[in-house]
Amino acid sequence: MKKPSLIYRIIKVVILAGFAVVIVFPFYWIIITSLKETKEIFSVPISFFPRKFSLQNYRDLFQMLDFGRYILNSILVSIVAASGASVVSLCGGYVLARFNFRGKQIVIYFYLITQMLPSFIGLAPLYQMLSWAGMIDKLPSLMLLNATWLIPYSTITIRGYLMRVPRALEESAMIDGCNRIHALVRIVFPLILAGFSATFRFCFVQAWNDLFSPIMYMNRQINYTIPVALNYMVQKNDIRWGELSAGAVIAVVPTVIMFAFAQKYVAAGLIAGAVKE
């Protein structure tokens, strides 16, 4: 193929670089704002780099609210939800990848359809279910709900990874006397580890970001998660931007790091199962 012209390459680099700057800038802005002193945040002309670095906003955040507790709640909910969803989906995804049986297409549709429904449509009926079961204001409800909501996505993506592993590998292990579960754990699982880990991270991030179920189902402050605490700060008339920025940084940074190099898996996974292999 001919080499593209120099002008084309320059335009390309400029556009790509410009786009990256536009994407990164809001993140940069929230981080430097969280590190500015309050009077610098609200001084004109605004500064694009802190004149003086300060952790005051973070200190205030932890003093004003029980933020350490919210971080802990968020971590607990996200880890349990992501683990639960991944394990359940590994089982389901395996069966959907390896067997043919009546109703298989129905199961796949059953999962795909959930991806199109707005998640908050079930919020109110769920409130009734949970209060009937005495599960309002209990963190395990959040774990259970988030795990459930992530099962369809994870099952479909894990099935996709499993379909790419040749059957022959486990079949030969099973001839050697390995049972199915053993073959799955020992032979197949290591081969899909990268994809499985991306799915786990995706689930973690989704549960970590969940806002509306804790707003609806958690009442006591002790059960707040990070997004609820931030929502509480945003809904006030007089928003304390310094502390809010610090809180937003705490909410954003772990997920960006977990997601950073899973981008290919995530994007492919989001449309997986629907495109012909």
Binding site: V252, T255, V256, A260
Partner: peptide, 11 residues
């Protein structure tokens, strides 16, 4: 460039 996808609409 995929950074925003790690963040909820709320944030």
């Amino acid at each position: 460039i995929f950074f925003p996808w790690a963040v909820s609409g709320f944030l």
